[in-house]
């Protein structure tokens, strides 16, 4: 029989929280921000195939930072939930809020019950109708959810990036300005210039005629936007 030494719950939560924080702080960041046609997600990501930003449903996108295998799990679970909901009810009944709640529940359970917490932070973004229908939910490794407005940064240098965004963000940017500024902001903590091939970006464009509003910006397009 094995005996677990007694650890006070406060201490246990504190240790887990520190562990998760450390894991997330090692990784790169993702920025989500509103632009004139919807939502832009942008990240520094040298891999062109291992994505941090992806489509969940018609009007919903996902972005994750931290441990790839863990936010990939969350992404897949999100797509499964959304597709099942949309099939059982109607496509318009799939909402980012429900998804954020599901993520929150799952991460909270993992945080308290599993051996180790997930070292992830995620964003769930949604566009719906006009600009007032835009939402960004930010879910932390312990399941806490916040409803963000206009812009948010998660991951390694989140605090620094948020400071820069606060001073630079203005509502109503076009895509070019949004991408250029976001790339500058991501490089700002260590004053780097990040090239287009190390940038991953996706938009939820509410003006898109397609039912699926998510669109990945490929490298040539990003390069053109940065040059423009």
């Amino acid at each position: 029989m094995s005996f677990m030494p007694y650890v006070a719950p406060e201490q246990m939560m504190k240790d887990r929280s520190e562990y998760a924080h450390k894991g997330i702080a090692r990784g790169r960041s993702v920025i989500g921000l509103e632009y004139v046609d919807g939502l832009l997600f942008i990240a520094e990501n040298p891999s062109a195939t291992l994505h941090k930003i992806s489509e969940i449903y018609d009007q919903i996108a996902f972005a994750g930072v931290g441990k790839y295998s863990e936010f990939e799990d969350l992404r897949i679970a999100g797509i499964r939930l959304a597709d099942l909901r949309g099939f059982s009810y109607g496509r318009e009944d799939v909402k980012a809020r429900d998804l954020a709640n599901a993520y929150s529940q799952a991460l909270s359970n993992i945080f308290t019950q599993q051996m180790k917490p997930y070292e992830v932070e995620i964003l769930v973004g949604e566009v719906d109708g006009d600009a007032s229908g835009t939402a960004i939910y930010h879910v932390l490794f312990d399941g806490s959810v916040t409803d963000e407005h206009e812009f948010v940064a998660i991951g390694g240098h989140a605090e620094d990036l948020m400071d820069v965004l606060r001073s630079r963000f203005t509502a109503g940017w076009d895509l070019t300005t949004a991408v250029k500024t976001a790339v500058e902001v991501i490089g700002s903590p260590d004053s780097r210039t990040i090239e287009a091939d190390a940038i991953e970006a996706g938009v939820l464009d509410r003006t898109r005629s397609h039912r699926r509003k998510f669109r990945r910006l490929e490298e040539p397009e990003i390069a053109a936007l940065l040059a423009g």
Partner: peptide, 16 residues
């Protein structure tokens, strides 16, 4: 048709 459409979309989203 509805299942088939979803099957294709689901595959595309999951695998990229």
């Amino acid at each position: 048709v509805r299942l088939f459409q979803l099957e294709l979309e689901h595959y595309e989203k999951l695998t990229g």
